[in-house]
Amino acid sequence: MKRLSLLLCAGLTLGACSKEEPAPEPVRPVLSFEVRAESEESLGRFAGSIQARYETNLGFRVPGRIANRNVDVGAEVGKGALLATLDPTDQQNQLRSAQGDLARVEAQWINAQANARRQQQLFDRGVGAQAQLDIAQTDLKTTRASLEQARAAVNQARDQLAYSELRTDHGGVVTAWMAEAGQVVSAGQQVVTLARPDIKEAVIDLPASLVDQLPADVVFKVALQLDPSVNTTAVVREIEPQAQSATRTRRSRLTLTQTPPTFRLGTAISVTLSSAIVPRTEVPLSALQEVDGQARVWIVDPQARTVAPREVTVLSRDHDSALISSGIKIGERVVSAGVNSLKPGQKVKIDEDSPR
């Protein structure tokens, strides 16, 4: 009997030991963000580039065939730098011809001077005729005019020879070439574009419909596409009055408030347009949960590391966010992903630095 009692007690003890403790509720990791007030309304983001405010289109002042192109696109040149040269054969021949004419007229000038002196001396001694003296003086004046004309022709020929070299009027950066070595160009034809790098501006193309509705307090934020942390603000300097027929956009030139060193000519930028609005709260659509037609979000208790649902009033929605008019406060943390698998009071693991 005693043995039976011992067996029963042992069986009860084993049965009690075999009961499992209930598993603790798992801690669910969630993404969250801190609620902030939005005081600006984004009007869009547009791609553009950094360009020089002042650009000069240069060309030769005489026609000819380009013999040499001395610099490439992107080269920085100083004032008076040689950009390209024409074949100078024609200009050199014109100069030699003008110099030959000058030498002939100079000889005539010397002879006319000598003849005028002789006729004057003969007339002074009373053995020369007045008519011969008048002819000699007239010939002297005519020869002098021919001499001045010949000298001007030589100077013009020298200028024409100098025009076969294309030089800069100011320092700058070569941004484009429209002709190559061996190409025949006419006088005044655009050959190269030279930009002054000292004053830069942002250039973007804005939709014509947006330009007509820009608010007076619009803010242009200009940032590098490769490094958005490098940014500055800008104001409109010029907007083309007519839209391009193909794209229905109007080119806009913006004056930069500051010009960071990395804003080089041709650098790709992004320009964000915004305007001031009444402060409001914006949350991603992934943070909203619909329950019986009522929108709600999950608020994180940072001390207890738990979540609780809260109903909110939605003003408007777009493809990825919603505007909230009431229900949450500035500074609270809201779950931004995984809301459909949460329960009130559930323990969560949050990332304090989670993006919105």
Rank of each mutant, 00 (worst) to 15 (best):
Q132T: 10
E238A: 13
A112Q: 06
V300L: 09
M1Q: 13
T232H: 04
F33I: 04
S274T: 11
P22Y: 04
A153P: 10
T56A: 15
K329L: 12
T193E: 13
Q225N: 11
V174R: 05
A304E: 14
A75N: 11
L288T: 01
R264T: 14
S336D: 07
D90G: 12
L161Y: 04
L323N: 00
E332R: 07
L256K: 06
S325W: 00
R65S: 07
P215S: 04
K329R: 15
N115R: 14
E106K: 15
Q244W: 02
A37C: 03
Q113E: 12
G80M: 02
V334A: 01
K141D: 11
L12R: 03
S316R: 13
A322S: 05
A268H: 05
V339G: 03
A287T: 03
G15A: 14
E21Q: 13
V35M: 07
G11I: 15
F220A: 08
Q156A: 14
Q258A: 14
R53Q: 11
L342N: 04
Q289R: 09
S209V: 12
A114I: 05
D169L: 13
G266K: 01
L210E: 09
D292I: 02
L83D: 01
A216Q: 15
T257S: 14
V278Y: 05
A176R: 13
L315S: 10
A10S: 11
L140F: 09
L254I: 09
A276P: 09
D292K: 12
S49C: 00
L285M: 03
T232F: 03
Q94V: 07
V219P: 00
Q119H: 08
Q92Y: 10
T89L: 15
T143F: 07
T249R: 10
V236H: 02
Q149H: 08
S42K: 12
Q346T: 06
G171T: 02
V335N: 08
S336V: 12
G78P: 00
R310I: 06
G338R: 04
P279N: 01
A52M: 01
S97H: 08
A67D: 09
L140P: 00
T262P: 07
A107M: 09
K343N: 10
K347V: 00
N340E: 15
N231Y: 12
V71S: 06
G74F: 01
A308Q: 14
G182C: 01
Q190E: 14
A287Y: 02
V335C: 07
T193D: 12
Q183I: 02
L82M: 10
R251P: 08
Y54H: 14
P309K: 04
K200P: 06
N340A: 15
L161F: 02
P260T: 09
